[in-house]
Design a protein around this nucleic acid. Structure first.
Lengths: 212, 212, 212, 212
DNA sequence: CATGAATGAGGCTTCATTCAT
DNA sequence: GATGAATGAAGCCTCATTCAT
């Protein structure tokens, strides 16, 4: 249903997009020439230009496609979980899985950073995605607050940003040195640290909170 | 302050390097052509090739230079601080300052990610830098442990990675949306979350800790 | 006759190749820039790179093309000659003709020497060609031996090398000084010397000699 | 007395020339940049331009120097030989020796061919050298004629060209495939063929023959 | 729908040469 | 005598894009 459909010559646009995604994931944006995609797809450049206006459109569509998959998966998998803490742990696990899947790095993390200040349209796609991601996490936290599981004096939006940041930052370190950076353990520990922090109020301790 | 520095005609290499740093910071690696640097420096391309073997050497030197500045500053500023917790807060503040200084984003964060799997030499420079950064943080944590300020059951290396990850992840979100992402507050809160987690043992609370 | 061939717009690759051959022949490899060929052909450099991967591929194809013509001509013209001695004289005549035809010198002799230790692929093309040339001559000699026309105590391979060497060495002297070096006469005399040597066994014999 | 004088900083021009000769011999003309020579000599480009007007002057001087050595050696070694046939055999041997000595190929044969139609001044140097070489051989033949050893109906100039051609043509084949082309044997056989041809008039005669 | 051909701009790099000091 | 610095022209190559058929 998703990709890999070589036999079915029925939706050429979708097929070209799949090839493009593979190429962008394998070589990055700059190193993926239109010609490379065309050759990989067994067509000529003209065919690509028939289906896509631009190299950028090709990239945008590729990214949106992947992002859509990721987001759908998150929503589906977490929809059935009642406990907000467990939801967050699951979110961490999904991120780990994606991070270690072949084409996530190049297509999501690398491009997101490369897009900064360079490809406005792409930057927007990623900014919006991150916004939705934070909103999703913030919503989980709000649920936790409502059920009395999390401290109510925490800024959900801020906390969501912290969570997202932790995930991204760990991914990058992992990409930098997959052999010796234990992403799974780091993500798990970060989730626990995060949850402990959210739950801290439940513990008599730690008020004053110094502000610079 | 930017380029075009005609007065100081002594040590042309250093001058060209400064211009290159500015350009790489402003436009990124790919979008910075040798010619662009040359023009910004008011010389011809040949002059650049006289002083630097390669575009890559230029980039490498630029990055090393900036990295050196950052690292020296961290070491100096923290050397005088006795309390490990305060050291970590200060580290967070230094990172914030650098993150919001003009050429940090492009030259450090963006390039670090762009280098992944693309420019091996550069990747190595960044990997080594991150290794040193984690070692530095791990060392602070060890000190805290020795003085009984931090829990002793925490893996300093792992924790250092978590700290580094948090900083990076927040920076990226800030770059993505400087207008609405409050980097200072997020970094401060992350530091506190981190320190609270390190100190947690000191508080009767929080047992069981589930491990997947 | 030279370039600028707009009328025949069918098979552009072949056309570009012809222009390239002319240029290489006129100016040599080093002095023939891609741009020069492009201009001579009335197209842009890009067009050349569409049809040929490389400057080297262009050169290789050019040389192979010319070499093929030469070899085909040799084989065809000599196929019908029964007497091995006459075959060798004819070979000498064909070499003379080619040597004095416009683009032979640059494209064959000069390039063959330039390629030595400099362009491995090209060197190989020429080495193989020379090998085939010697094999062809050696075969003629073997025929002569079998028919009792040539001494049987001569090493055909060695003799073939001597013949090839004589031809080449004379060509070079001719190129060096076309006005005063009489290539035709030198080649004829060399052939006779060579044939006399091959026939020597029949000692007492062989007077009259002399060829046009 | 000749070269290799590293300690004696007394004749810098000569020293630079020696380095240049080495470079031209090792890499060829095109691949020897002024900078390469300068580095090899441990000086800067400016120093080269102080001593030599041009890259071409450098090349010309290099070639002349080598050519001079070769010619002096030929004259000296053959001056003491009485028998013209033996002189020719010795000439063949000297050529063989030079051909298999490191820097002969690139510096003499290759350059001689490259110079054709490309570097007029250099071409002239080589043309003149070849002229002297032929004159030298022609003179040997004349001597042989006078002493009744060689046929008198042979054109000495023409014969000299044939000899020179044989030598060059064999050298090139050897350079093309040093592993399997037996230059020594080919040169010896060519000398014998040449001498037999020169002596042919003395019909009945000429047995024993064979060299080494 | 798609191809084959081509463009044009731009990028990296090399190199002989010059010149003030 | 020689250096360090720089120039400028030229060369090779890549690539997004266009277009007639």
């Amino acid at each position: 249903m998703p990709a890999q459909a070589q036999p079915t010559r029925e939706n050429p646009r979708r097929e070209l997009l799949n090839v493009a995604i593979d190429c962008f994931a394998k070589y990055g944006y700059a190193a993926t020439s239109i010609d490379r995609i065309a050759k990989a797809a067994g067509v000529t450049k003209g065919a690509l230009y028939y289906h896509f206006k631009d190299k950028e459109e090709l990239l945008l569509e590729s990214v949106k496609h992947r992002l859509g998959q990721f987001e759908r998966r998150v929503v589906q998998e977490i929809a059935t979980i009642a406990d907000p803490a467990e939801s967050i742990r699951t979110l961490g696990r999904i991120c780990h899985e994606h991070a270690t899947k072949s084409n996530h790095r190049r297509l999501i993390v690398t491009l997101m950073v490369e897009a900064l200040d360079t490809y406005p349209a792409l930057e927007r796609v990623f900014r919006d995605m991150m916004g939705r991601f934070r909103a999703f996490v913030a919503n989980l936290i709000e649920q936790g607050k409502k059920r009395g599981r999390f401290r109510s004096d925490v800024d959900s939006q801020l906390a969501a940003g912290m969570f997202a940041g932790a995930v991204m930052g760990l991914e990058i370190q992992y990409y930098q040195d997959p052999a010796s950076f234990d992403l799974r353990r780091a993500l798990e520990e970060s989730c626990e640290q995060f949850l402990a922090w959210l739950a801290r109020r439940a513990r008599g301790a730690r008020w004053k909170q110094r502000r610079r």
